[in-house]
């Protein structure tokens, strides 16, 4: 554990509050009223932008100083994209991609 128990509990509360705001907000805001066109526009486009942001967030610490630093990520992501385009099986793509990455960083690019 990096954080103390109290800090961990606060983070859990934050994740819970954040999630519940996004789940309850539409039901609270649109109680009996017509839906707001700006909010529904954001609801349509934001999911796509946010996943793009999250992919970059996950890769934020990848170094480009030497090819061996970013090779494992690049190889694993290419495999995931290809596999997912082909089979479109979420669990298969995640499982195979993660195993490929783990093997690469544990054996070849140590």
């Amino acid at each position: 554990m990096t954080l103390t128990s109290m800090q961990t509990l606060i983070i859990i509360c934050m994740v819970t509050i954040g999630t519940m705001i996004t789940r309850f907000l539409p039901f609270v805001v649109f109680r009996g009223t017509k839906s707001n066109s700006y909010i529904s526009y954001l609801g349509q486009v934001l999911p796509y932008s946010v996943i793009g942001l999250l992919v970059i967030y996950c890769l934020k610490s990848v170094s480009f100083k030497a090819p061996t630093y970013w090779f494992p990520e690049a190889i694993a992501i290419i495999c995931i994209v290809a596999l997912h385009y082909w089979k479109e099986n979420t669990l298969l793509s995640i499982g195979v991609g993660t195993v490929i990455y783990m093997v690469l960083v544990q054996t070849i690019f140590v």
Partner: peptide
């Protein structure tokens, strides 16, 4: 970050 990642739930709610 949680709000951003779960923003898609707004759409489900609507």
């Amino acid at each position: 970050m949680t709000l951003m990642i779960n923003a898609r739930h707004l759409f489900y709610g609507i």
